[in-house]
Computed example of a mutant assay.
Amino acid sequence: MQASDTLMYREAHEAADVVARQFAANEAVVSALARTLRAQPPRFIVTCARGSSDHAAAYAKYVFETQLGIVTASASPSVTSIYAAEQQWRDALFIAISQSGKSPDLLRNAQAAKLAGARVVALVNVEDSPLAAIADTVIPLHAGPERSVAATKSYIAALAAVLHLCARWHGDPALVAALQRLPDALRAGWDADWSPLSEGLLGAHNLFVVGRGFGLGIALEAALKFKETCGLHAEAFSAAEVKHGPMALVGPAFPVLVFAQDDDTLQGTLAVADEFRRRGAQVFVAAPGVDGAGTLPVPGGLPAMCTPLLIVQSFYRAASELALRRGFNPDVPPHLNKVTETV
């Protein structure tokens, strides 16, 4: 089997078309929601999700807080679903992110948020799902059927939906214009050569994935994908936190994958990568405009908020190749199902 034969590879390859389709189909609903939110700003934003969708929520936190100045926090689903603790969510914006829209704990939290007076928005791929039925506003991901257990195009679609909402809510013409260029950038980035990563991690047992700011969410996502598709233990850290203890593990037999975007976090993140190299670690860096040994190409020319979508698309392609090289089928990870129905 070649990587291009896997569903994971083929579905990740669809991301550019998915994003273009989503932006066109959702313009009316996103613009209407943005007008409402500008007229009646929420006191704060709460995100609720599991797995890859929660990594999209981590990205949303940085987007909303940096661009809108609104505190954004992640809900712990068990607080409502298991402990049945009432939450003070009146006048909040509650954003639930899900591929299937039917995990019981997510549904309970969305229902509780609505009863508590929050505006509930669902970013969901299945438009007729139970979550969509609860929500005040549904922003469909338009990813189409995703058959690989490993989420790829639905994750990128969730990031794109966050960007679309932020661009219209904030009213930023530059970001709106960038979104029009994003699908073509994804198409161009698909052919970026990340083979050094799939070759370099063939015999690895553990690694760190490091990001910061907009890139932290995709670091979390990559660490999850390494575990579920490649049988490789990986942990994600912020470049600001990895030096507070975890760095003690890093050395010649402990590789590191670093994601960065061209913003105020770039130099600090690259400095951490350099420190890892001085410790003898094999370091891979994915960042636009960065070259040299161990670098992985990333298209430039878009705002830093867009870079994580380009990086994670290339990562998915490399991960599907690495999984096969390590003897795994990335479409059917052991012991996992497509939909995890957590209570």
Rank of each mutant, 00 (worst) to 15 (best):
G268K: 00
Y59S: 08
M1Q: 10
T66C: 10
L33V: 04
P333Q: 08
S76Y: 07
R50T: 10
E241K: 12
V19R: 03
A58S: 11
V242I: 11
K227M: 03
K243G: 05
G300M: 10
N26T: 14
A160G: 04
A56M: 10
A28V: 14
A132I: 04
F44M: 01
T295I: 00
A113L: 12
A273C: 06
R10Q: 10
M247V: 05
A92C: 12
H13V: 02
A135D: 14
G171D: 13
V298G: 05
D5L: 00
D193W: 01
L37E: 08
L175D: 15
K153M: 02
P255F: 06
Y59Q: 07
Y316V: 05
P297F: 00
A16K: 03
A185F: 00
R35N: 12
L106T: 14
F259D: 01
P255E: 12
A39Q: 11
A167R: 12
T137A: 11
A84K: 15
R10V: 02
P297Y: 01
L33P: 11
D17F: 04
A49I: 03
P246K: 14
Y59G: 06
G294N: 00
L220F: 10
F208E: 03
G213P: 00
V242H: 05
N206C: 12
I139S: 14
K225W: 02
F23C: 07
R325V: 08
D91Q: 14
L106P: 11
V258F: 09
G51S: 03
P104H: 03
G211E: 08
Y155C: 06
Q2W: 01
V250P: 03
H335A: 01
A60E: 03
F259N: 03
R50P: 10
Q40T: 15
L324N: 04
P299M: 08
S74T: 13
R38P: 10
W194C: 02
G301E: 15
A281C: 11
A304F: 06
P42R: 12
A60Y: 09
A260G: 07
S238W: 00
A151V: 01
K114L: 15
E65W: 07
S53H: 06
S238R: 13
R168W: 11
G251C: 07
A3E: 01
Q99N: 14
T295K: 04
G280N: 12
E127H: 15
F254H: 06
Q88H: 07
S238A: 15
A161M: 08
P308A: 00
Q99G: 14
N109S: 09
C306N: 04
D184T: 02
T47P: 10
D54P: 12
A253V: 02
A271I: 12
R277H: 08
Q88F: 05
I82T: 10
T66H: 13
V46W: 13
G294C: 05
D184E: 06
R278P: 03
P183Q: 04
V162R: 05
T340Q: 05
P42N: 10
Q87F: 04
V256H: 00
G144C: 06
Q2C: 03
S81Q: 05
V71I: 13
G101R: 09
V63F: 06
A260R: 13
V258N: 09
F208C: 05
S129I: 09
S76H: 03
D184N: 04
H335M: 00
E235L: 02
P246H: 08
T72Y: 07
